[in-house]
Simulated scan of single mutants.
Amino acid sequence: MTKVQIKVNDNGSYRITGDVELIDGEGNVYPAKAAFSLCRCGKSANMPYCDGTHKGTFESVVRVPKTEEDK
């Protein structure tokens, strides 16, 4: 089984890779893909997937907080 990875892209989507099943709120399963990007801005015409509509209008940079050991 492939390890699932979710990357929070700066000013953009969540990039999902690995063996994962995407399910909507009613339990319907989307067609399987080896990798895909999920929209974070809510502007995509291809929800829940990112279509790049956010470019230049969406700002979000998320980082893992530093621990005392990292300082």
Rank of each mutant, 00 (worst) to 15 (best):
K71R: 08
T2L: 12
D24S: 13
A35V: 00
Y14I: 12
I6S: 13
K71H: 02
T2K: 12
K7T: 09
M47E: 10
N28C: 05
G25I: 06
D10N: 14
V4Q: 01
D10H: 06
T67C: 08
D70E: 12
H54Y: 07
L38R: 01
N11F: 09
I23F: 02
S37R: 00
R15L: 14
E68F: 12
K43M: 13
G42A: 08
I16Y: 01
G25P: 07
A34M: 11
G56R: 04
C50G: 02
G12A: 13
F36R: 03
D24K: 14
G56T: 04
A35F: 02
A45I: 02
F58P: 11
L22P: 06
S44W: 00
G12K: 13
K33F: 00
A35G: 02
L22W: 02
P31A: 07
A45C: 05
N28I: 03
V61N: 09
Y49F: 15
G56S: 10
V4R: 04
C39H: 01
G27L: 08
V29D: 14
K33W: 01
H54S: 09
I16R: 00
T2Q: 14
T57I: 10
C50Q: 06
E69S: 07
I6N: 08
G42S: 11
D10K: 12
K43T: 09
N9G: 02
F36P: 04
P65R: 02
K55E: 15
N46Q: 13
S13H: 05
I6R: 06
R15K: 14
K33G: 00
D10R: 08
V29F: 10
D24M: 09
C41N: 12
N46M: 14
V61L: 09
A32H: 11
K71C: 06
D24Y: 10
